[in-house]
């Protein structure tokens, strides 16, 4: 494996919610500036795994994690400041979650939190982030309006822009289109294709076609374990594992 390309890798990651084991011995290497998709049936641990990558699981009571997660070869569960980590590894949630404030303030929130006060720099960041999220043209005349007034698809792109505004290196996406209509979904997928030039993107999806359309590599999760991991083309055409084949061809899940 070419290690210069690897952005995040995990070693023997186990995760327990109380007594139930949600992740079993997960070791994987995720490549820089690629789109990696996690697929698998509900409850297979793919979202849980995604959340270990920026330590959002810390918010849940009763979680025990063992094993290692490395970002650029530093263990994020040891060496890292959690704030710094989340700045570098951004996250887009299943349901769009804009804050109840203006579009502008939503985008500027992250930079402000991290200490940027200059109005002109903030303006620049807001414009750039919205452009990168392909939302600028739709909202440039109403930046001061409440973000809750946007459509679901626009809200999700706003949330993506909000993440981009803190200039992360990795963007985690937890089923970002599952709450959206097909047209909005398509827009987000185009956006992901565009974003991978600059960002490492890891996306959890229920939608097999979506994984096929947008990802370079795919990992198939089952019962907390990675069953198979490889290039998307290969996983979808000649899967090695019988269980992967069954899932992809829709025989279960």
């Amino acid at each position: 494996m070419k290690s210069d390309l690897q952005k995040i890798h995990t070693q023997n990651l186990d995760l327990f919610y109380g007594d139930t084991q949600a992740l079993k011995d997960v070791s994987i290497s995720l490549e820089e500036k690629k789109v990696t998709a996690f697929i698998g049936p509900s409850g297979c641990g793919k979202s849980t795994f995604l959340k270990t990558l920026n330590r959002m699981n810390d918010l849940v009571d009763n979680v025990k994690i063992s094993g290692k997660v490395f970002l650029d070869n530093l263990n994020i569960y040891e060496k890292y400041d959690i704030v710094e980590l989340r700045k570098r590894v951004g996250m887009v949630f299943q349901k769009p979650n804009p804050f109840p404030m203006s579009i502008y303030d939503n985008i500027a929130y992250g930079p402000r939190v991290h200490g940027i006060k200059s109005k002109s720099i903030l303006n620049e960041i807001v414009e750039k982030s919205l452009k990168n999220a392909a939302l600028w043209d739709e909202v440039k005349d109403r930046l001061k309006q409440n973000a809750l007034g946007l459509s679901g698809g626009q809200q999700q792109r706003l949330c993506i822009a909000r993440v981009l505004a803190v200039e992360p290196e990795v963007v985690l996406m937890d089923e970002p289109t599952s709450a959206l209509d097909p047209l909005s979904t398509l827009k987000i997928e185009d956006l992901i294709n565009e974003l991978k030039k600059n960002y490492t993107i890891i996306i959890v999806t229920h939608n097999m076609q979506q994984a096929g359309r947008i990802s370079d590599k795919t990992a198939f999760f089952l019962l907390g374990e990675i069953v198979e991991y490889g290039s998307t083309d290969k996983i979808f055409s000649v899967p090695e594992d019988k269980r992967t084949e069954d899932y992809i061809t829709g025989r279960f899940g």
Binding site: N54, M56, L59, V83, E84, L85, R86, K87, G90, M91, F93, K95, N97, P98, F99, P100, Y109, G110, V113, H114, C159, R162, V163, V166
Partner: peptide, 14 residues
């Protein structure tokens, strides 16, 4: 909503 808190924490806010 919990999602407000998650959104903010995920952006690196304390």
């Amino acid at each position: 909503p919990k999602s407000f808190r998650e959104g903010s924490l995920a952006l690196g806010a304390t």
